[in-house]
Nucleic acid binder design. Sequence first.
DNA 1: GTTTAATTCGACCATAGTGGTCTATGTGGA
DNA 2: TCCACATAGACCACTATGGTCGAATTAAAC
Lengths: 213, 213
Amino acid sequence: MNKTFKNLDRDKQKRIINAALREFTVMGFEQASTNRIVKNAEIGKGMLFYYFTSKKDLYLYLIDYCIKMIESKYFALIDTSERDLIERLKKISNVKMDFMGEHPDSMNFMATILVEGVDQIDDTLKSRIEKLQEKGYDIIYDNLDYSLFRKDIDAEKTFKLIQWAFHGYEEEIKYRLRDQDVTTIDYEPYFDEFFAYLDIMKTAFYTKEGDIK
Amino acid sequence: MNKTFKNLDRDKQKRIINAALREFTVMGFEQASTNRIVKNAEIGKGMLFYYFTSKKDLYLYLIDYCIKMIESKYFALIDTSERDLIERLKKISNVKMDFMGEHPDSMNFMATILVEGVDQIDDTLKSRIEKLQEKGYDIIYDNLDYSLFRKDIDAEKTFKLIQWAFHGYEEEIKYRLRDQDVTTIDYEPYFDEFFAYLDIMKTAFYTKEGDIK
DNA sequence: GTTTAATTCGACCATAGTGGTCTATGTGGA
DNA sequence: TCCACATAGACCACTATGGTCGAATTAAAC
């Protein structure tokens, strides 16, 4: 990546980054077209290869960009002091929603990278991505209070059930809002609906007040 | 589609169908290559366009083929006489596993059709697909016994939670077995693990024996 | 055994798109 | 008037595309 790119006005920079992120997300590395990227970014073809030495160089830059973005704007905002699993997942959902609102392309791009293993990546980058995944795991599981769960069911498995519910609801909302503009959506009513699910799970999975042992 | 295709030995027919299903599933309609299809099916290029008038003709044939397949080998085997949601989902999982073992390409292909709306489809085909989705919905929800659920939580929402758990576990298993040969997998231990999850949900969501009201 | 018909193949076609280069033309400061 | 940087897009060799076509092979009919 050429230093000129760093000195660009933020607008042009963002246009290029977002156009490229979207292209790679939708098409994958091989099928992604630099022609479409420059057209959507509204720059000349020559410029892309002035800023970046090759398609691959651009791709690797984007991965690095997204890793930094997720570390600073997503993971950094989640604290693990909340020891109630459901309450913590609730907070994570909030941060995630905010992040998705502001950087949807970065998140979607990284999602495709994580599910499809990509050949273009070298070992150091690969290990950075692994670290990122581990960190994502810790943020959910670290320092949880197992004693909240009823004693007659397995806590580990109940964890899973709760997580699947979070994921399921997320997907359900994505499906319901499938072709609406992300920036204009009011998520408030969905949070209320979601909290009802959380209450059910607390009623079903957590120790009732007054219960002993 | 040419009638000659119907008269082909089953082996060649299957080779062509499966090669095409896989190509369209992985690449989508536009990016799918007829060259790769004929190479993987081990037939000459000319033959594909002898059996089918065009790429689109092949594509539409495959959709029709899969709809019929799913209706006769999947939906037909599920009965809705079991009124306990969890037990019914258990049976559905069994049929689904069997089907996935024998016709994985058909199922994956239809899945991509259902999530990505495809332009190539005309109205009559579109409505057949909608019917299929409705049928899939009925198979889960028809004739269920709501009285099994505890009275202090919302039954509809609990349905959702249970479904999300089924889906979550399915995905988890797919992930764990991600690069193993589908035909050689022994699913038995996973069923045991899965039943443990179902027991938890019954304990948590269903009315306890002896409970009144 | 000869003629006719149904199958099979892959070289070939025009076309479109690829990643990347290069030249010509700004642009802004000294 | 320089000069260095920045910009655009025509252009390149190359690859892959969906689809065609004539020649070869096989099967059937007489």
